[in-house]
């Protein structure tokens, strides 16, 4: 059986996937809606400046939106993240984020749960661009943490 790793060894498929998410990002554009948490990631670098919105209801991620000035990698990685996390329980989402950040750090991770996000498996080789691949993910991780605290 072909594993998910084999699929993500096909350079052409991966390029297409990234291009697609860059040119036509999913869940793009912010909403005027108070129920969303919102995080602007503007001070991490002076290049990417994106805002991510998150709607969590009953411990489930209902929606994610994002917008801003961003390079290919930060746009595509946030777009792919939004697809992956919407509909997941908070706990599952946190597990996915943890595995994704491990992958970007070139540490052990479970490729099966990362689905399309496996496309970023080699980003760690461009050391100066790691931030771009994590900026949207960091935003969601921080918002989940903050909202978790309020519930306690």
């Amino acid at each position: 059986m072909a594993s998910i790793k084999d699929y993500f060894n096909d350079q052409n498929l991966m390029r297409e996937l990234l291009l697609d998410h860059y040119k036509y990002p999913h869940n793009h554009g912010l909403l005027e809606n108070d129920k969303y948490l919102s995080k602007r990631m503007a001070s991490a670098s002076c290049i990417d400046d994106i805002t991510v919105q998150l709607d969590v209801e009953d411990d489930v991620i209902k929606d994610i939106r994002f917008d801003g000035v961003a390079c290919t990698i930060s746009t595509a990685s946030t777009s792919i993240m939004s697809d992956l996390l919407i509909g997941k329980k908070v706990e599952e989402a946190e597990e996915i984020i943890r595995n994704y950040l491990n992958m970007i750090d070139n540490k052990d991770y479970d490729p099966e749960i990362l689905e399309e996000a496996n496309v970023f498996q080699n980003v760690y080789k461009q050391a100066n661009r790691i931030k771009c691949a994590t900026i949207g993910w960091d935003a969601v991780e921080e918002m989940l943490k903050e909202s978790g605290k309020e519930d306690d």
Binding site: Q11, L18, Y22, T72, I73, F120
Partner: peptide, 10 residues
């Protein structure tokens, strides 16, 4: 090109 710049991340 856009394709070439993306290829460096694959």
């Amino acid at each position: 090109t856009l394709e070439e710049t993306i290829s460096i991340f694959l």
